[in-house]
Design a binder for these strands. Sequence first.
DNA 1: TTGTAAGCGTTATCAA
DNA 2: TTGATAACGCTTACAA
Lengths: 335, 335
Amino acid sequence: MRRATIIDIALALGVTPSTVSRALAGNSRVSLTTRQKVLNKAAELGYQPNVVASSLRKGTSDTIGMLVPRINRNFFSHVISAVEEVLNPAGFNLLICQSHERLIKERQAIQVLLKNRVAGIIMSHSIETTDFEHIIQATRQRVPVVQFDRVNKLIPGPRIVNDNFTGAHLAVKHLIRNGYNRIAHLTGSMAVNVYQERLNGYKYAIDEAGLVFEPSMVIENAITRETGFEEALKLIAKNKVDAFFCAGDFSATGAIQAIQHSGLKVPTDIGVVGFANEPFAEIIAPKLSTVEQNAYDMGIRAAKSMIKVIADNNSGDGIEEIVPVRLLVRESSVK
Amino acid sequence: MRRATIIDIALALGVTPSTVSRALAGNSRVSLTTRQKVLNKAAELGYQPNVVASSLRKGTSDTIGMLVPRINRNFFSHVISAVEEVLNPAGFNLLICQSHERLIKERQAIQVLLKNRVAGIIMSHSIETTDFEHIIQATRQRVPVVQFDRVNKLIPGPRIVNDNFTGAHLAVKHLIRNGYNRIAHLTGSMAVNVYQERLNGYKYAIDEAGLVFEPSMVIENAITRETGFEEALKLIAKNKVDAFFCAGDFSATGAIQAIQHSGLKVPTDIGVVGFANEPFAEIIAPKLSTVEQNAYDMGIRAAKSMIKVIADNNSGDGIEEIVPVRLLVRESSVK
DNA sequence: TTGTAAGCGTTATCAA
DNA sequence: TTGATAACGCTTACAA
């Protein structure tokens, strides 16, 4: 069965398509009786507006592109969920792509989104991304870009970031207060803003406490459980560490396993604090102290920011929202 | 800067838009030299095809709608990720909606997808859904529907399901072989096919071993960690259970906590097997034995099935793919 | 308040 | 091999 169009409704009612269009759009310049007749007939015919045609005519769509490294990572899936929760009631839909942490795929995805004439792009860039031309290109085509978590100031538009510095500062200060003073830091790539900021917070806390910052205590590219395990094992063997501040909960889990593997105990011998509050953090033994990264909050803010930028019809450049983080003290860091 | 169209390319080259369209579409009825000129000019002008216009004209889009209860649930986010991995290289994009397990939202989401003229819908229905008319409506509009995990035969089109029966059977048989014989079953709502099938597998294993099936040992609507904890506590207090087969890893975690809370030990006093292999299953102590539900595999199959249905231009009705599951034996079920 | 008519960018049909 | 033309379904000046 062919789908009904506004022409079918118009024909059935003896009015013109323009009148039907106005009635359906809630345009005030249409009589109440006509509107009612149109709405009734639309329901009767099972009319569903064709947003493809509408988008083409209006030159803009109700679709927002969302581009993340991986859909199935806890943090990102929560951000996506929150974004959808805000955008859907506002009449927007989500076209989702993943970059798989690859620059090439990120470039392709941006092209896909632009081809689809999305009204805006909400994104967090891949770990490989150091050149942002492909993203800036979108903004040049007047497609607003809202960045979250992994962001770069070269790209015009709002940025939603966690307070990574404060989170790291709180975590390390907490470890120091609890009697740990040879604190290693397992982290990711320094090309990514979030790890850079967490390292800065770590350094600040070390300085603040009058301790000596030792570069050898900072291990980059140790962010998975496997690498966390290996690097922690090496540091423990050198016998110079009594705590780990990890830039992610996965590496923190690896560190805990390395400690236990070495015949030592968490938190009595070595303390551990993670970052992210992954769902398993309060399930593992000992329960992991970690910095809560509010994915839901970020998603809500990113979505609202996008709605505002679209409504105001400006790029929203330079706006940076810093989402507060909390330190969740559990068992792994209190002797 | 206005975006270039095929008309701009045509004008610049002194040919007509039809020729440009054919050249860009890879149509054979275009001379090699013209095609090359068109491609060069397109690149020069930074031309991006307008798929909105193309979709309108062709009457179909390259967008597949995806509707799941919750984007941020581990299982679903993995399915989505896998679907995207297959669909993207095939030239399709994903428009994603979530029902939040609510029938009303599911109905709205279907309407949104139909309004957007998606080429097909890949979905898993909400826990509230017992009437499928809104989904059947899509198929009547010749929009193919591929269901996965939570499925219903009333809806025409392919179904991708886990081998829930076998998974449950394996799990319970394993518990029995390991010396447990008073096995309780914490599960979800019997309105959902997956829980029904797992219960059937449980019953089958009980019968097969010559044990007596006791309805009081099956607790419905105990699928979260909280409800799992509470219901397990009650059963333990009655002192009639020596193992739990849980239809989900969250309730299994709750059961473990209830056992420990009661001063008993897993697996020596009471054994536990879960279902899903959530990421925390191998991190918690004791490590949780569970049935692996291959979300990735399901996503791949669902996506391929959709591509096939679209290519063949038939609904693919009645095709049911059963994804094999594996029992992962860890610590929680071996004395 | 309603109608007329043009156009969004693309593609399919037919003719040259 | 290329061109002319119409059409996909909708919105919006402008006119009545």
